[in-house]
Amino acid sequence: MNLFRLAGDMTHLFSIIVLLLKIHATKSCSGISLKTQELYVIVFLTRYLDLFTRFVSLYNTVMKIVFIGTSFAIVWYMRYHKVVKQTYNKDEDTFKHYFLLLPCFVLALLLHNEFTTMDVLWTFSLYLEAVAILPQLVLLQQSRNIDNLTGNYVFFLGAYRGLYVLNWIYRYFLQDHRARWIPWISGLVQTALYADFFYYYILSWKKHEKLKLPA
């Protein structure tokens, strides 16, 4: 464990807490893409298949349970909570996210470390996570006003993977000098997809203006 990875995990956890706070406090999920949240449930379930079979550390196990639990809770809130589900606007959540599953799965069948169920699904989860934010970004571009909590949520969600890239640089140069192309490239693609969001987010923060993404 290094500082970059700990900061990344904490930023990731914080982004989820910000989202849960927004939904629980405002009893509204306006501006949030249910599709991105559903993709994240699939990402965590396929990423943490070894939750019960492989013990890495207490921290690792606790965080996996927290990520799976909170992502389920968010989808439950948006689908079934009597008040919150009324605020979900499916007309603006238009991205065809199921079209992301097959290409990621096929790519994982072609490009992986070992051809085992665990490793192919783990690799699938890395590819899927890289593109899971797309429905949310598309929704933000179409929504007129982005509330602060939603903007902060997306910012921290993007920042966490950027911190992981620093963690991989640190591990490669200062620890074991082993190339791990699959997580590296997936993580870089994931972080790159946030590039324009980061630009407009920081610009709006500097100019003390409402965040607005160009359509």
């Binding site: 995990d9 990423r47 550390s57 690792n60 965080m63 070992e114 997580p183």
Partner: peptide
């Protein structure tokens, strides 16, 4: 090996 040890990450 390669795959295993990166699985210590979340």
């Amino acid at each position: 090996d390669n795959a295993k040890d990166l699985k210590d990450e979340l």
